[in-house]
Every structure is written in C-alpha cells, then in structure tokens.
Design a protein around this nucleic acid. Structure first.
Lengths: 229, 229, 229, 229
DNA sequence: CATGAATGAGTGTTCATTCAT
DNA sequence: TATGAATGAACACTCATTCAT
C-alpha cells in the first residue's frame, strides 16, 4: 500500500504541477522541464508516468471529470424541479471552476480546443456529465415546466455556453471575481430568458396549474445556499 | 495603384492561406512553410508582410472584425425592438461563421485562447462588436422590453456563449450543419428562457388557445427537432 | 555449489539473451531493457553481472572463443597435411557459425568492427585461434606442400576473409543455407586457387615428388555447384 | 551554374566531413554537431541537405560507388585474361581504399554491418560492381583459364573477402601500410592457391597451351616480405 | 541477490526568422 | 520586391546507469 501510494502520490504531484504550469503558460509554451521543476522531479521521471507531453495534458482531467459527474448526478437526485436542477448544475460548474481555477484554465483554454482530446477517455466523462443536462431538460419538458418545443441540445448549448463563456472571461481576464454570485442571476436568465417577467399573474397561473413544482417566487435573488461539496 | 494593389492582393492571399491552414492544422502545428506553400510564395515573402508568425495570426481578423461590426451596426439601426435586434445579432454571427468556417475555426479554437490576442487592435474590434450587444440589452431594459434587473454583461455572456458554443461544436465535430436553422430557436430561447411561456397579452391568448403547448404565433419554428447528440 | 551455479546460470541466461537480441537488432538499437526482458530479469540485475552494456557485449565470446580454440587445436593434432588442416579449420569455422547463427551475427556484424574489442581478453582468444592458421600455413610451407613464397599472413587473410565473407552474407541476407556444403569447394579453392588444374600429369608428378603428402586426388568433390545470386 | 555549384560544393563539404568524422569516431558516437563543426556549417544546414543522420551516412557512397564501377568496368575492357582481370580488380580495390582510407573505414566498419544500407541505391552500385567479378570468373571458366567446376559466387567471396579482410585489418589496426604492395602476392594467391606450383613442367605446358596469357614466370614476386604480426 | 524507481546526460531534429542577392 | 540559403535556439524524449530497499 505504501509502495502503491508512493507512486500514486508522485503521479498526482506531477499532474498538479502540470495543471498549474499549463494554466499559467499554456500548453505549447510549457516545457517538460518547467513541469518537472514545478513538480520537483527530473524530466525523465515524468516519462516514467506519462508517455508524452500530450498524454500528460490529457491526464489532467481523469479523476476530476469522473468524480464531478458522480457528484452532480448524486445531487440532482435530491432536487425537485427542472429549474432547480439547472440551478444546481450551474452552481456545481461555477463552484468547481471557482475552486479549481487552474483546472478551469486548462479545460477552457487548452483541452476544449483540442481535437485529439475528443478521442480521450476523459472526454467521455465530460460528455456523460453534459449528458445529464440533456436529461434535466428533457425532464423539464416532460413535466411541462419547460417549453415543449425546447430543443434539449440547444438548451444545453445555452447553459454550458454561458457558463463556459463566463469562466473563460474570468480566467482570461484574471478577474478573481466571485463566480458563485452569478449562480442565481444566471440561472434565472437561462430559465426565464430576457423578456420581462409577465407579472404575478403569470406566476399564479403557473402555480395553479402545476402546484407540485417549485413556486419560483422569490427566485430573483436566491443566492445558492445549500450547495455543498 | 496597380502596384499598391499588387501588394495588397498578395497580402490577402497570404492571409487567406494562413486562415485555411491554421483552421485545418492549428497554429502550432502549422509552419510558415505550410502557409507559404498554400499561398504560393516563399517563406521569406511572408516576412515582407508580417513581422512574425503570431502577427500573421493576429492579422487574420482585421478587416473582418471591423467590417462585421459595421454591418451589424448598420442593420441594427433599422430594426425595432430589442428582441428583434438580438435575433439580428444571432443571425449575423451564425451567418458569418457559417460562411467563413475557416475564420470560425481560427477565431474559436485559436484566437480565443490566446492571451496576447487580447492586446490586439483586432480584439478591440471584436470587443466593440460585442459592445453592441450590451447596448441592445440596455436598450431593451430601458424600454421595458427586457427585465429590469437584467445584467447586461451576463446577458451578453449568455448570447455570445451560446453562439460560440454552437459554433465550436460545429467546427470541432466537423458537422456541416446549417447554422442558420438555429437563428430562431436560439433567439427564442435566449429571449424567452426555458420556462413555459406565460404570455402577457399574448399569454392570455395563448392560455386560451393552447393552454399547455407553445402557441407563440409560429414564431418559434424550430426546424431542427431531431438533432441528435 | 548450487548457489554458485544459480548465479552462473543467471549470467549465462543474460548472455544468451544478449546474444540473441544483439544479433537481431544490433548493438546500438538494443536497449538494456530489451535484454533484461528477453532474459527474464530486471534491468538492474544485468548490472549485477556486467558493469556496462559494452562489457556485456564483450562478454559474449568468452568461453566460446577459448573453447573454439581448444577444439580446433586438438583436432589439428590428428590431421596430417597442411591442406587437410586448412580443410579442418574451414570446417570448424563454418560448422560453428552454422550452429550458432546468433553468435555469428554478433561476431561478424558487431564485434568485428569494434575498435575497443581489440583490447579485450576475448579478442586475444580469437587471435590465438587465428594464430593457429598461421602455424598451419608455415608448416605447409616448411613441408613444401605450400608454395615457398607464401606469406602466411596474407594466406590467413585469404582463408579467414573468405570464410567471414560467406558467413556475413549468410547472416545479413538471412539465407539459411547449409554452410557445411561449402567446406570442400572452399578448401579446394583456397588450396588450389582459381587456375585450371594442371592435369593428371601434374598430380602424378606431385605424388612422385612428394609422396608423403595427401594426394589431392578426389578431394575436389564440390557438392555445391548451383549456387545462385 | 555558380548557384548550382554553391549548393553542390556545400553538400560535398558536408559529405566529406561526415566521412572523416564517421571514420574516426564511428556512426553512433558521432553527433550531427561534430559533423557540422567539421564541415564549418551549422547543425541545421546539414538538414538542408540530408533528411537525417542516417541518410547522411548512406549518402557517403553515392558518386564514389557509381564511379568506381565505371572505372573498373572500363579498365577490364582492355585487359586480356581472367587472371589479369582479377589482378586489375584487386588493384582497383586496394588502390581505392588506400587512397580513401576514410571511405574504407566507413564502408568496412559502418555500412557493411547496416541492414538498412542493403536497401539503398548506393548498395545497388556496390552490388553491380561486385557483379563484375562474377563475370570475370565466368569468363575465366568459359575460356578454360579457370577450373571448370569453379563456383563463381564462391570465388567472388574469396576475392572480396580477402580484400576486405585486409582492408579492415589495415583500417582497424590503423596501419598505414602500403596496400598496393599486396596486389601481386594476393592475386597470385587467389589465382594459384596455396599449393606448390606444379613445377616448371607445369609452366611449360601452360605456356604452350595458352601462349597469350601472362607467363607466370617471375610473376610471383612478392614484394612484401617483411609483413609482421 | 534482485529490483523498482529515479535521473543525468545527451542528441537528433524542427522551425521561425534573417539577410545577401 | 522576392527568395534561396543559412542558422540560432529550443525541446521532447531516450536510456544506460545508480541505489535504497
């Protein structure tokens, strides 16, 4: 066990170092020596754990992506209402990227644009994760909470696109803003759209029609509070 | 004039070649020789027009971004209603990327992740272009068409994020889908959000006519419905 | 004893593995890992037995060369006539290389060209072995069987050069030909040269003059005749 | 022409430098930088002319091999008698290797053991060159000058093997001996074999039978006598 | 004895960029 | 203006070798 750990620890150390440096300097601009130095190992040692610089890059997701999917999957089980689930998704993404700015940088600026990454195991996890959003939307449509003509893939593009756009801005501009502040406004925007709210009436109607769903009242300023993780 | 033209033509030839090759192989994977060959000039000639490979890359927007801004600016003048303006913006972006897939590739996969590009003149044009969106939203808020608490920057992130997400998908997956099909569904989604329509006026009508389904006057003609994966 | 053996066995296993792999891939192209794997030991273990990759290479002769010399030396004692001794030498070389193609490969393609090998103990054995040929020739000259002006070193070059040239061909071209077929034709060629035999008369004369030497009659039984390419 | 020359001259300069350094240090032990330095160019320049270090090596024959074949071919036309032709061949080889010791080193110690070289254009020239020897032997057999049962391939192995063995010795041992001294003794040995000449009588017979051939009288004037070691 | 793990030292090769013509 | 030719500067990757366990 100790032995096993030793090597696992070392591997993780390298991965974390790579994440940091890649985030900072970009992939092409980073040399293996940079990573080795940051990780406190020799260049050659990196090749003990990864077959190439690219494999090192592609290994950065890995646990992260898999675990992220599991966590979000678990949480969604206990949330009622598609809108609330969207909120949870938004929360999870922003919370995660907030906590892992280096990962965010690597994912948004490097991996996302890499065609070869698409063939990666880690990308499969990413896809499965984003598949959950499709399910949430379909669920919302089925329950009547969302518009029936909603194209789930389009909606997902809207949700992920918006999140990623914000994260990229935050990462690129180096703005250390509090991403979580945006969970509610963003969710509301996604769910309600740009149009002016249609008044209490609208709500009443809705509540009347579908009493079992969450009454969005007070929704306008709900800064996520119960989120854990 | 002819002389001037000669050199301008050559410069454009190089730019177009670069755009094509960069789009195809990525920036780092492309050599100056690749571009030179594609452009039918010698390597050294490229340096007559651009001081470095990076400057060549950063020169690919240029006219495009400036002209794009002008065109969209012009059109917006003749459109009434913030929602319609959003539609126009969506249309222009998708139309443009559709017509210029190589440019889309370069912009979405290469420039977007480049920190140095942010300091570029061309990026200023991009920003100004995206500034228009802010204006449209503020206008919509001011006129009461959009929700008063709308954060224009957030809204813009939603609009651009969604568009770019779609374009990246299209570019990365090599799907030659018809992006214009999505103008209406996307605009509707952005403007109306995911929630079932409540209709102000229109709402009443709607409720009467088709209580549970979308009646929004055929506007949402989601041609794309079978979108898979 | 068992313990001692254990280590000797292991050493031999490594040597045989090295011989095989070196023969197959060449020295520079072979890694210590290759040899270790072939031998079923770890890389580090090889360094328990040999101080360097080169020492491993130089250890491949060793017994072989020493034993070869002894065997040939022994045999020559019981053979009369310089020509017959040459035949024996040719036989021994070809027979040995035939039976040990990997050794042949290593000796002919790797060791033979290695300047440092010349300073090796094993090379001394090789030299002593080839020294025997000098003796045979000098003996032949002294007895009058060979031409008096024969330069023994030149003659040895002819004998060894021819043998080695054939072995290299066989090894390089991967021809699994039966080298022993060539013992007689080759010996005859070496001894008699290219010139047409000088007729029965010549032989008679010879026999008359030097009855104690083997009458070469019938010796020329060149079994191999259709050799092609 | 000047332009063409310029690059050709440079290429030759690199080739000669490579030949020298490879001969001195061996292929693997030589770095591109070594060659570049010797040639007075930069490392990168070498790659302007050769695609790889190995291609550089394989380019060292080239003209040499082709020209060698032509020269020898031409000369053979004007020589009568197979034995004399053999002498010419021996002469040419030894003369050439004598004059080009670096080439000899590269050919004998490096190229000869390289399997990939066998697939080279240059190797084809080498083969064609050695094909000439086959022809000479067949001619000698046909004319009755050589023994009828002579296997041409075996004979060629004897001729080339002996020559190469001598050259390798000379090259490996660094003995700057005069190889040309050996032309006659070697040729005689190859042609006449080790056996004692069959007496004056034999000669007379021979002369009678084939008057136009070189009366071997005095031919065996082994100038080299002090051969040691 | 055996070896897993680590690494120092090395090198072929690439390519953006320059400049004389 | 255009380019053929040359190169400086980098870098990913390999592997023989060491050594603590």
């Amino acid at each position: 066990m100790t032995v096993q750990r030793k090597s696992t620890i070392r591997k993780d150390k390298i991965l974390k170092a790579a994440e940091r440096i890649f985030a900072q300097k970009g992939f092409q601009e980073t040399t293996i020596s940079d990573v080795a130095q940051e990780a406190g190992v020799s260049d050659a040692t990196i090749y003990e754990y990864f077959t190439s610089k690219e494999e090192l890059l592609f290994s950065i997701p890995g646990e992260t992506a898999r675990r992220g999917k599991e966590v979000i999957e678990l949480h969604l089980k206990y949330i009622r209402g598609a809108a609330n689930k969207i909120r949870a998704v938004v929360y999870h993404y922003l919370d995660f990227y907030q906590k892992e700015p280096n990962y965010a940088s690597v994912a948004m600026l490097i991996l996302k644009q890499n065609r070869k990454f698409l063939e990666t195991k880690a990308y499969q996890d990413v896809r499965e994760m984003s598949r959950l959003i499709i399910q949430v939307i379909e669920e919302g449509v089925a329950s009547g909470e969302f518009k029936s003509q909603t194209d789930p893939y389009l909606a997902r593009s809207m949700i992920l696109g918006t999140i990623e756009h914000m994260v990229i801005r935050s990462v690129l501009l180096g703005k250390p803003e509090n991403l979580l502040e945006w969970v509610d406004p963003l969710t509301d925007l996604l769910v309600d759209g740009l149009n002016r709210e249609k008044g209490a009436m609208g709500w009443n109607l809705k509540i009347n029609l579908e009493p079992r769903e969450e009454p969005p009242g007070g929704k306008a300023t709900p800064r996520a509070k119960t989120k854990t993780k």
